[in-house]
């Protein structure tokens, strides 16, 4: 609370960020000390404005101000004709921008146009790609499995996705924290259906223990669970090694 009270002066001189200001206004609702101070200090701050000498205003100023205001209105809202519009805009720009800021504005504008152009190009490319994909297949995940490790690969985990690509089905398995394999050893994926196993391929994890495998399922093939074994050598038709992962 004490901390917030320190912001009282900054609040009065309007030097708080929007966020800080909102926070202080919350604080003000509950802090009696600040409530007592805020009004009189604000009036004091505003009273500083009277510390100036009144001056005679040049007679021409009113026309300058009114023309400035109403000419801008005309040039921006209802230009009478093309040439006047050009002159008006020129006037508008010379009034609004110093040569430096005009230069900066021009550079920024070019940048914006450049970005816009490359953006449009990109959008075209993407549209073309999307069309290509759409014309061939739409990919959709139809089922997700969680895989967890056991035995020698107790720390391993993974996910499997059954992906529908047009009329074919692809199984994508992603594995993490797999113990590394030695020599001929491979991990082999088995699809289980009614106690029967069918191989869905073998893989070796990378140095970080990550593994990925995709398998295109034969037409109308279905399965209930996924099991992974550590095989002493690849290309077995039935598992010989220990089961190390399975669906949960």
């Amino acid at each position: 609370m004490e901390n917030k009270c320190e912001n009282l002066s900054l609040y009065i001189i309007d030097e708080l960020s929007e966020h800080e200001k909102a926070q202080f206004e919350q604080h003000l609702k509950i802090c009696i000390h600040c409530q007592k101070e805020v009004q009189s200090l604000k009036e004091t701050w505003e009273m500083l404005s009277y510390d100036f000498e009144e001056q005679d205003v040049p007679a021409s100023l009113k026309d300058d101000v009114m023309n400035f205001i109403f000419q801008e209105q005309e040039t921006t809202i209802q230009p009478p004709d093309e040439t006047a519009k050009k002159d008006g805009l020129k006037l508008f720009f010379t009034k609004q921008f110093s040569p430096l800021s005009a230069g900066i504005a021009a550079v920024l504008l070019m940048g914006v146009i450049g970005l816009l152009w490359s953006n449009l190009q990109l959008r075209d490319n993407m549209a073309a790609l999307e069309n290509k994909v759409e014309s061939t297949t739409t990919t959709e995940i139809v089922r997700t499995f969680n895989l967890s490790g056991q035995n020698t690969a107790a720390s391993a985990s993974g996910n499997a996705y059954l992906v529908q690509e047009g009329s074919s089905t692809v199984l994508v398995i992603e594995l993490n924290n797999m113990p590394s394999t030695e020599n001929e050893e491979v991990y082999q994926v088995w699809l289980l259906k009614n106690g029967k196993r069918q191989s869905a391929g073998t893989l070796k994890p990378d140095l970080n223990g990550n593994g990925l495998i995709t398998y295109r399922l034969p037409k109308n093939h279905s399965f209930d669970d996924i099991g992974i074994t550590l095989e002493p050598n690849p290309n077995n038709t039935q598992p010989q090694g220990q089961k190390v992962m399975g669906t949960t």
Partner: peptide
């Protein structure tokens, strides 16, 4: 500074600046 200004002016002007107390 703000407090000093306020206190001085509230003394001098009486009602013009309302003192917080």
């Amino acid at each position: 500074s703000l407090k000093k200004l306020r206190n001085y002016m509230s003394e001098e002007l009486g009602g013009v600046v309302r003192h917080g107390k």
